[in-house]
């Protein structure tokens, strides 16, 4: 299991660096842009907060983008949420199916490694990648705050990163099942699913009738505006996430252990 995990981490290291540096640097640049826009922000914040449902959707009705915390939550919250969700979705979507798609399964599974421990090793590598992604991006965001000479909002920042990580784990667990059931790389399906989850959350915040059902989608776990405005954690969303993760991981083992491996 450890050998498989280490092997996967090695193979996925470049992708981790590319994704985490891209999202982290984009987030850092957003933060650094704050000072240049600070003067105009007060007027913009006033206008943005009066856009009704759209202000709600992007969290600008609860937070002022004129403050660094508010600016971070609305701008970096979106960049990190979407970027990390896509990374989580595609990393897990290919982790099992790539062996059959690339015809490497016959090599891997002829080694004395049970399929169960291979799944564990691979899933563990996805989890480590998600944690590393979150830490790397987090470092960039902290650098941004420090560079501007602002106090780091440690509590909100940590809560934001932990809840984003949880959201990514939920998304990854769903695409892991797709990977287990498929013999082809489902990178497109993974990306599509991440975007659907994002769109669901966005639409849910704009359409009043859908607000009560927002907790079903993973993005409701980590709404940066809610976190930075000090709102309580969405308990229903946390329960749904826990159920989805447990069911999806169990299904992954069941599907992958029973399937015939394609040559």
């Amino acid at each position: 299991m450890i050998t498989v995990c280490r092997h996967e981490l090695k193979l996925g290291f470049k992708a981790l660096l590319i994704w985490s540096l891209s999202v982290g640097i984009m987030g850092l640049l957003c933060i650094l842009m704050y000072t240049s826009m600070e003067g105009e922000m007060a007027d913009m914040a006033e206008s943005f907060s009066k856009l009704g449902a759209f202000s709600d959707a992007f969290g600008m009705s609860t937070l002022s983008i004129a403050t660094l915390g508010g600016f971070f939550a609305t701008e970096v919250g979106t960049v990190h949420g979407l970027g990390s969700a896509m990374f989580a979705a595609i990393t897990a979507a290919v982790i099992l199916s790539k062996e059959e798609d690339g015809h490497t399964g016959e090599f891997l599974y002829s080694l004395p490694i049970s399929r169960g421990s291979a799944v564990t090793g691979k899933a563990l590598s996805v989890l480590i990648n998600l944690v590393a992604f979150t830490v790397i991006c987090g470092v960039f965001y902290v650098i941004g705050f420090v560079a501007l000479g602002e106090d780091v909002l440690w509590k909100e920042m940590l809560l934001f990163l932990v809840r984003m990580l949880l959201m990514n784990i939920e998304i990854a667990s769903v695409t892991l099942v797709i990977s287990a059931a498929s013999t082809k790389n489902r990178l497109g399906a993974g990306l599509g699913l991440a975007l659907i989850f994002y769109a669901y959350d966005l639409i849910g915040r704009v359409v009043p009738d859908l607000k009560d059902y927002l907790f079903i989608g993973p993005f409701s776990l980590a709404n940066a505006s809610e976190i930075f405005s000090g709102q309580k954690a969405p308990v229903e969303a946390l329960i749904v996430a826990a159920i989805v993760i447990v069911v999806a991981v169990t299904a992954t083992y069941r599907v992958y252990l029973k399937k015939d491996l394609a040559s």
Binding site: L11, G102, H103, T104, E106, F107, S110, P112, S114, S263
Partner: peptide, 21 residues
Amino acid sequence: HVGVLKEVGYMPSEALFYPTM
């Protein structure tokens, strides 16, 4: 299964490995 594979050396017909390794 795992015990069997410990004692077996298998060479598949396709011989495909991880390209970047």
